[in-house]
């Protein structure tokens, strides 16, 4: 009786929040980046770190509000990535593992060296380290980027990119 009541109350407790926990049925695959939307053939593409490492990569050093001191990031420039998959769009939506959503306009990857980073200071990033995929702007080299606007767009723990 005590057990049943607990189960029922828990169910009721969580039932109320059921709509909010709809995501519990989805599978989170942290090591894979999904790219969808206006790809070359309209189909979604999945990238692992190994896949991304095959593309031309760069690195730059910058300070960020979430790291202490200048940090070197290594990865693929977003424009290179989009060019590699033949995707064209005016913006994309980045969704993160923690359900954070950011919208990045095309100016950001054409004007600035916006990078999809997978290595920080030479090593791959853990989830708790804001990895495995992190969108980072070269804040130090562009003073215009040092505003809340761009900090908000610098999404970490990327799960998917939808090009529009």
């Amino acid at each position: 009786m005590h057990k049943l009541a607990t189960i029922l109350s828990v169910c009721a407790f969580f039932f109320g929040l059921a709509p909010l926990s709809a995501h519990g049925t989805e599978v989170m695959r942290p090591g894979v980046l999904q790219i969808g939307g206006h790809t070359a053939d309209g189909k979604a593409i999945s990238f692992t770190i190994a896949d991304l490492e095959r593309l031309p990569h760069t690195k730059f050093t910058t300070t960020t509000p979430w790291h202490t001191g200048p940090t070197t990031f290594e990865g693929v420039l977003v424009r290179d990535l989009l060019a590699a998959i033949g995707a064209k769009g005016s913006k994309f939506e980045a969704v993160c593992l923690d359900k954070y959503i950011a919208e990045i306009p095309s100016d950001d990857w054409t004007t600035y060296n916006l990078m999809l980073a997978y290595k920080r200071d030479g090593s791959y990033m853990q989830i708790k380290d804001k990895g495995p995929f992190l969108l980072v702007y070269p804040f130090d080299s562009e003073p215009a980027l040092q505003t809340a606007k761009y900090y908000a767009r610098s999404a970490w723990q990327l799960a998917s990119i939808t090009i529009e």
């Binding site: 989170m28 593992l97 923690d98």
Partner: peptide, 22 residues
């Protein structure tokens, strides 16, 4: 599996107060 990922995400949130502006 999802919870496992979230644990790691939350780890990051805890550690965040050791870094940068936080």
């Amino acid at each position: 599996d999802n919870l496992a990922v979230e644990v790691q995400i939350f780890d990051g949130r805890i550690d965040a107060f050791d870094l940068g502006s936080l």
